[in-house]
Structure formats: structure tokens, C-alpha cells
Amino acid sequence: MSSGLVFAAAGAVLFAMGLAGIVLIGHLLRRILAFNVMGSGAFLILVGLAQRAGGADPVPQAMVLTGIVVAVASTALALALARRLHRLTGRTTLSATDSDPE
């Protein structure tokens, strides 16, 4: 197992952890963090898998650099929306009545 594959496997575990976090956690701030963990997992898989045979591959590295910047932007937008929701309703979770009756 090359070091690239170890990175990719760690990325897969991070991705699954983030996914479970998004499903299980109600608080929006922690859900945004879980989304970022998931994204980091995807980046690790991309970079790790590409260099499993040896040398680094500049193409996925450039893609991941693009992805990181987009992730920052989407995180900021998500935070803005979460703050707006908090200011308007005082809640930090999404309404349970829309899709998830309990």
C-alpha cells in the first residue's frame, strides 16, 4: 500500500464521517463543519489516488486548489445563511416539520 493510497483511504474515512455528521447533526454550524470535513476527504482522495503510483500529479492538485477556494466561498455563504436564519427565527437548526417528522 503506497503512501498515496493511505491518503486516499484516510480521505474515504473523512468523507464518510462528514456524511454521517451531516445526517446526524442538527446544529447548522456543526453541520457546515461536517460538510467541510467531507470536502477535505474528497480532496484527499483526489490527490492521494492520483499519486498512488509514485510521483505527484499536477492535474488533480490544481483541481483540489480550485476546490478549496470554492469550499471556502460556499462555507462563507452557508454561514451567512445560518446567521440570517438565527437572526430571523432564533433557531440554529433547520425546521423538523418540512421533511423529517419525528
Partner: peptide, 26 residues
Amino acid sequence: ILAAASFAGALVVAMLDLPAPTVHLP
């Protein structure tokens, strides 16, 4: 949690089985 763990496991197994890329981008 079980579903996420098995998903991660399946991903890792799939990555271990992955054939070498046919296009050498570097």
C-alpha cells in the same frame, strides 16, 4: 454510523482494486 462505516470500507476496497490509469497525465 454503520452505513457510513460500510460506505467508507467499500470505497477503500474499491480504491485498492483500482487498475492503473490508462492515461498518464503527469
